[in-house]
Amino acid sequence: MDTVKLVYEIDGDNFSAAGEASTAVKRVLKKLKLPSAIVRRAVICMYEGEINMVIHADGGRAYVDVDEEKIVIRLEDRGPGIPDIDKAMQEGWSTASAEARNSGFGAGMGLPNMKRNSNDMKIETELGVGTTVTMTILFGGEAS
């Protein structure tokens, strides 16, 4: 299989549209006939990340690369950055808005769930500059 490279702009102004990129990614992964458990893990990572980008960072850009061994999802935003990654990784910790909470998100479950569904997750963040989250889903490996 040739490497498939996808790029999506994430609109940070429209919460109701959040998830459109994840829907598109799911469609591509299913077309590639990847195992359904892998597709599910990847789209959960992508969707949680996309929601985070809209809630916290005014959108950004998502890069999804698929090769014979893995899916790599890289989410780049130019938001405020994460002041304390350890706290952000705690289940239940959240700084989300009321709008996000009223929509069923912002419970502080996103980042832990992204980590759980990926084999590797790396967060690079700088206050006032932005955050990049890179997640790898291996076809041969169990979720972390």
Partner: peptide
């Protein structure tokens, strides 16, 4: 809202 349908889809 729409996010219910997207979540169900995922």
């Amino acid at each position: 809202n729409q996010q219910v349908i997207r979540t169900a889809d995922m």
